[in-house]
Design a protein around this nucleic acid. Sequence first.
DNA 1: CTGTTAGCGCTTTCAG
DNA 2: CTGAAAGCGCTAACAG
Lengths: 362, 362
Amino acid sequence: MVTIREIAKLAGVSPTTVSRVLNNSRAVQPEICERVLQVAAQMGYTPNAAARALVKKGTNAIGVVVNNLHDPFFHDLLLGFEYGALKSDYHVVFCSALGKSMEEKRKYVRYLSNGVVDGVILYSVYLFDEEFIRGLYSTGFPILLIENTVQAVQTHSIAIDNRQGVFNAMKYLYQHGHRQISYIAGKQDKAVCVDRLLGYRRAVEELGLAARSDYVRYIEEGSEDGWRVMDAFLSMPPDIRPTAVLCYDDVVASYAIRCAIKRGVRVPDDISVMGFDNQTIAPSEYTGPPITSVAQPLYEIGYDSIVLLSDYLRGDRRERISRTYPTSIAVKETVAFCGKEGFDKERGGVPSAVWVGSDSRE
Amino acid sequence: MVTIREIAKLAGVSPTTVSRVLNNSRAVQPEICERVLQVAAQMGYTPNAAARALVKKGTNAIGVVVNNLHDPFFHDLLLGFEYGALKSDYHVVFCSALGKSMEEKRKYVRYLSNGVVDGVILYSVYLFDEEFIRGLYSTGFPILLIENTVQAVQTHSIAIDNRQGVFNAMKYLYQHGHRQISYIAGKQDKAVCVDRLLGYRRAVEELGLAARSDYVRYIEEGSEDGWRVMDAFLSMPPDIRPTAVLCYDDVVASYAIRCAIKRGVRVPDDISVMGFDNQTIAPSEYTGPPITSVAQPLYEIGYDSIVLLSDYLRGDRRERISRTYPTSIAVKETVAFCGKEGFDKERGGVPSAVWVGSDSRE
DNA sequence: CTGTTAGCGCTTTCAG
DNA sequence: CTGAAAGCGCTAACAG
């Protein structure tokens, strides 16, 4: 490993001077400057990040911690992070914990927050993570929570209004004539899921929809469970059977649709299904019709979180980051459904009874 | 920030002792031990990674650098990395550079290799990266190249036999009666693409297939170009028009198929198309028939690369990591093609004229 | 403009 | 079994 001392020796100057040249931190005689640079390049010098971090108390890096980085859900968010990283002068590193694993996630946050990065962007925060967050927050380490907020702490935060998003979806369904709308709720261990359910309840009330306790059912474990829940809805007597099912996310919606189709119930002809997230990449092997969904600006969220946090850490921005982004309804047309219109030549001749990507930025 | 000195003071011992307790590095009186542990916990102490890295000359972390982490291609590989990380006692961090950006990628490798991680796993290596790799290799920093090897350096390496993979695909097509097989080659700026093309050429020769220079065409920029290339193939006179087209990867294959279908040419009835990679998640908005492809064990590659590199860095393994994994042909059945058999009830009632995932491990 | 000195937080000899 | 001292590679005062 090449150190500035060795460079200093070879260039016939002091380590300090080398440091100054390498960092442009103070004026140095042009000729010395050049000599140092030359020696450094020749020896293949690269600064030791650990040493620098230790003395500067800063690493010029940002960490992003999520669960299940492999999940296609992250496509747009990742794209945002990547472009943000390109824009920013900070290094960006990603860490991933599998499943809901909180221990693993915490391990990474702890690791990162102690001399590896200057700030952490956190996705996938469960309610049982909150205490941990509060503890971390109390140390003064910069945290930016994405898509989530934690009660009683003022971390940086970029979120969407989940309640409003669900409310809007309900209103959309209402405007399309639905009065019997059921809801597949996520496990109430994430603030997001709690909020979305609240949005449903508020909508039922404010819009004067059929309010039945059995219109709300919960996913037990894993999105595949959407199938079971949908099955229950479809088994209700015709007169009370919901005409539309809103799902707390697209993956669950995809399973709900799979179930419906399997039972010979046509979507959206016989029953409407809506999702949330407007995921660009189709969930696991889904091949049903495209799913109308509540879209959130994942790309912007990713991009902005890197850029804004960089600004904050650099000192170019002093106020807390706190934003709520709007959602919108992404309507999908059911095109070329097999057996109905047949092939849709315009779309390539195959039935596009499949997820339709939204706006991947490539 | 809590330091061992503060803990030492509060516990009434020396920093050295605190360090020893925290690291279990030497026997310490049980009562002191407990006291220290208690104080540390109470103060919310976490060791400073930078300081430790500086003195230990090791970080207990591994970096993974790729281009375009958002690419669905990475799904299985990421899953492997994640499970490997779970198994390993090393921290694993991911860095991503957009596009083919080599500067960005190098920036990350340089950054990581200097006191941030103890070893780097590198994916997406272009030929023009080779010199950089050689330079890095010469510093003695541990590098594990995935899916690629660099001439003249003995870095760690986990790869597949691309040549053989393509050869096998050709043989497969041959066995299905094809004699006029054309090839859509990738830009020859990656060793992978070069190797795959070599496999094609060898197969043409050894199997005695129609050898025409216009049976090989190259992607210019971006996989969408597969469309243009396919168009050219389909425009050839009937007698010499290829009966099968092998593509250097699945994404290109998907565009080739889109083109065929658009032109009213049925796949695979009128022309066969094969891909490479057997990507689990469908490429951008593809809704055509599933693509028979050369499968590589991406999950294993990801998993093994983390585990093996950990072993090496820990010292549990001294020999260089050097593996070549076998590929296989993943045959996809064209099921329930719309307008032919109609709905395939077994598969959920919708035409599954779409990518069929392989073996996502969830 | 340049060099000397001190020290970031931690671990590791080496004495006691 | 415990502590004092030294130093990892670098930068930030402070002198010169």
